[in-house]
Design a protein around this nucleic acid. Structure first.
Lengths: 194, 194
DNA sequence: GTCTATACGATGATAGAC
DNA sequence: GTCTATCATCGTATAGAC
């Protein structure tokens, strides 16, 4: 059993190193050789733990996609007010970003290097996530708790404004709570003082 | 003279094709051969018009960096109210994005592939731009026209929420005016209805 | 599981004929 | 200015010894 535990840990280390390098240099510009070196192995030895370079990208992207899919499902089941739902989505993005800073960057920026069968799956999941958030926004507008804004523009502005967190968030710099409080005010109340 | 005009046009075509491919596949994953093919040349012929693959990336990135630098300078000279200045920044981002959809994507996503001397210059320009926007936000908070938000969080949320435009904006889909109106409301007035 | 050695195609870029 | 031919290097991945 000690062996299988060690193997699982190394695989995890490799995936973390891959996420870090893919984030820093981009997927295409990261070579298997340097990835191997960063975990103290030769390139060929890496293939005892992974199947291919792209498989690592797949695991990173799908892992994060699942976090967002599960997160939005839970929010929709637990909250019914559109404002509360949007607040919880802000929290979700902060939590996922704080959970694995480099892997969520790869998820955001490198998915285009997934090959055909996986890229389609990935984009379907993203589309599905976006359409759930879009419905929340539409509900909010129809029920009168949100302003009469264009739902699509709102969707992209809202989601994109949460997409820098993983670049900037560092545990010591600021608390998740303070980040959340500010993002909630900026997005929902607006910058302008009445 | 006809010759130099033709050469200038081809160079421009090459840069546009490069921006399109860098956007679509990423800089590292785009080969000089396929770039050449996309303008109807062999790879070697391309080198009569460009010096290297990276030089094209440099021109694309610096060209857009200059647009933003010039734009913010003009805004600071022309407007003094922080709210007006932020509104004009929204307009600036819409204009630059609409002006060259693919090249601004490359500017945003591929600058990390610039090699040392150019990457530093690029990052300095970006830093300088961000610090000017940050000052506007701080002014707005101090003078009481903006809410008491964290200036840095506001900076990144604000700028990032303008970073999806080039992905989504298509001339026939929506007018720049309608896009501007909505982004102004979302960012400044907030999503929540009073 | 790790290593050395290697396959072999693709890469950015250049030389030189036309 | 364009082409064909080529270079040197690097890419991912595999074979096989230990």
């Amino acid at each position: 059993m000690a062996n299988s535990v060690k193997k699982a840990t190394l695989k995890k280390d490799i995936l973390e190193a891959a996420a870090e390098l893919f984030k820093e240099k981009g997927y295409a510009a990261t070579s298997v050789r340097e990835l191997a070196q960063s975990v103290g192995l030769e390139a060929s030895s890496l293939y005892n733990h992974i199947q291919s370079k792209e498989q690592m990208l797949q695991e990173i992207c799908m892992g994060n996609a699942n976090k967002f899919t599960d997160g939005i499902e839970h929010i929709l089941k637990t909250y019914s007010n559109p404002i509360e739902q949007l607040e919880q989505i802000i929290k979700l993005h902060i939590d996922v970003a704080a959970d694995s800073l480099s892997s969520v960057t790869v998820f955001n920026d490198e998915w285009k290097h997934l090959s055909p069968p996986y890229q389609e799956t990935f984009l379907k999941m993203r589309k599905s996530y976006e359409s759930k958030v879009l419905d929340i926004i539409k509900n909010g507008i129809e029920s009168g708790v949100l302003r009469q804004v264009d739902p699509k523009i709102t969707l992209y502005s809202f989601l994109t404004s949460l997409r820098w967190i993983h670049y900037w968030f560092k545990p010591g710099r600021i608390s998740k709570e303070r980040l959340y409080d500010n993002l909630r005010i900026i997005q929902l109340d607006g910058l302008k003082k009445e």
